[in-house]
Computed example of a mutant assay.
Amino acid sequence: MNPSNSNEKSARKEIEKFHLLLNHQAMIPAQCYRMSDNLYSLVCFTNQIVALFISKNYQMIPIFIERVLKQLQRVESQPGVIGYRHLVYDYLCQVSYYLAQFGDLDEEWFNSRIPQELLDAGAQNAPEYDHEKMVITLPENWLLGR
Rank of each mutant, 00 (worst) to 15 (best):
D90K: 00
A51R: 10
Q25D: 12
D104C: 09
Q101C: 11
L72Y: 02
C44K: 15
S77T: 14
M27S: 15
H24D: 09
F64W: 14
A26W: 04
Y91F: 15
Q71T: 07
R74W: 09
N57A: 14
Q78W: 09
V88T: 10
N57R: 13
A51Y: 06
F45V: 00
V81H: 01
D90C: 09
I28P: 04
E16L: 13
S96H: 05
R34G: 00
H86K: 12
E66R: 14
L105R: 02
M60E: 15
F18K: 02
C32S: 15
A51S: 14
Q73L: 14
L87Q: 02
Y58M: 04
F53T: 01
Q48M: 11
A51Q: 13
G83Q: 14
H24T: 04
P29W: 04
I61K: 01
C32F: 01
T46S: 13
L99Y: 03
Q31C: 09
I61Y: 03
L92Q: 04
L39K: 14
Y58F: 15
M60C: 07
P79N: 11
Y40K: 01
A26T: 04
M27E: 13
N23M: 12
R74S: 14
I63V: 14
G83N: 15
I49A: 02
Q59V: 12
D90M: 00
I54C: 02
Y33E: 08
F102E: 04
G103D: 07
Y97L: 00
M35F: 08
A100W: 03
Q48V: 11
L72W: 05
F45S: 10
P79V: 12
R74I: 04
Q94E: 15
F102G: 01
L72H: 02
K17V: 00
I54N: 05
Y98N: 03
M35C: 08
V75I: 14
V43A: 11
Q73H: 12
L42I: 07
N47T: 06
V75R: 03
V68D: 05
R34C: 01
V43E: 02
I63D: 12
Y98H: 05
C93R: 03
E76R: 15
Y98A: 03
V50K: 15
L69F: 02
T46D: 07
Q31T: 10
S55G: 12
L39A: 10
H19C: 04
E66A: 08
Y84T: 05
Y97R: 08
V75A: 11
Y97C: 08
C93G: 01
D104V: 04
D106T: 01
K17H: 13
T46R: 11
G103C: 10
L72I: 10
C32D: 05
I54F: 00
P29D: 04
Q94G: 08
Y97E: 05
M35I: 13
L52W: 03
G80V: 13
L105H: 04
Q73G: 13
M35R: 13
F102I: 06
P29S: 07
L69D: 02
L22G: 05
C93S: 09
L99P: 01
P62M: 02
E76I: 09
L20W: 11
L92R: 01
A26C: 03
Q71H: 11
P79W: 07
N47D: 09
N57H: 14
N47M: 10
Y89L: 14
I61G: 00
Y58V: 02
R85E: 07
L87H: 05
V43M: 08
R74K: 15
P79L: 12
I49N: 02
M27C: 15
E66N: 12
R85Y: 09
